[in-house]
Amino acid sequence: MPSLEHPVILDVRGLGMNFGGLRALDNVDIDVREKEIVALIGPNGAGKTTFFNCITGLYEPTDGEVIISPPGRKSEKINGLKPNIVTAKGLSRTFQNIRLFQNMTVLENVMIGRHCRTSSGIVGAILKGPATRSEEKAIVRDSYAILEKIGLDESVNEFAKNLPYGEQRRLEIARALATEPFLLLLDEPAAGMNPQETLELDDLIRRIRDEESISILLIEHDMKLVMSLSDRIFVVDYGRKIAQGAPGEIKNNPAVIKAYLGEDVDA
């Protein structure tokens, strides 16, 4: 487990987001350290997905700051940047409601992830010179390697829409990994998975952290998975952060239990 000496790589301060009159996020502070697995939990409609959308550039936050300090690079403020720029800077995500490129093959989905790390343009594509060829080869090779790691190498040429649900979720992770992130944001990766698949996911997320040195911030409703995986947990309710701490502390936090009243927290 990473200790508190590890440097902070994502620092979100006072994040706020208004949708017209609705304050979906209010003064949220969250930080993620290097090699850490952090969970963001909260009841439905608490503002978790909105938080992801704000830091990945899909929404521009109304107030607050999002600061990244990628390992070995300078810190910078990224709020207000376009999503593709944020991804290029090393933040990559999956979606709660799966957003794969349905009519592309599994391999091509991952190849799209390589887009921001490669550079050949239109002229290159038409002439197909040696530089383009070798880049294209590298894209295929790297994408295939990622699929092997995720365990989807059996279905590279399958259309994404033909994969079973659990595998679609894993493919989203593979696609996000292809962008070479230093921080991976997973929005309910276990939703719709059976217990066996959830176990495999637990293992996969650990492997991504340990072998690739990628930090992980995940939103999840499956408390068993959250408690088993996370180093630290943040809890939001009605757009406000109501608690943070190690899994053991969160489990017994009265505010959290109250927020989840009626929901099963001791699982």
């Binding site: 999503p83 593709n84 991804t87 957003r99 799209i112 887009h115 696609r175 996000a176």
Partner: peptide, 10 residues
């Protein structure tokens, strides 16, 4: 296929 995912993938 998906404008949002496309942007989010860089």
């Amino acid at each position: 296929e998906d404008e949002v995912a496309c942007q989010a993938m860089g």
